[in-house]
Amino acid sequence: MGLDIRYPIGLMFSIIGALMAVYGLVAKADPAQYHQPAGTNINLVWGIFLLIFGGWMLMMAIKAKKQNK
């Protein structure tokens, strides 16, 4: 089937990851308003992780496309 599912997965998690990481960075400036469970800025940490995961998925998809050519 003509769609490599790694593109949408990679793209979606990259966007969500970037969104969360930036939100974590900005919200950190106001610690009184920002709930950090168990002392972790979880948005920043997990956002970066999702960004890496999304990027890796995209890379795999692009690599597969090149190989098929």
Binding site: I16, L19, M20, A27, Y34, H35, P37, I42, N43
Partner: peptide, 11 residues
């Protein structure tokens, strides 16, 4: 409810 700040909550 207990652990998610905005952002992670959405996720």
């Amino acid at each position: 409810k207990r652990y998610c700040p905005p952002g992670l909550l959405g996720l």
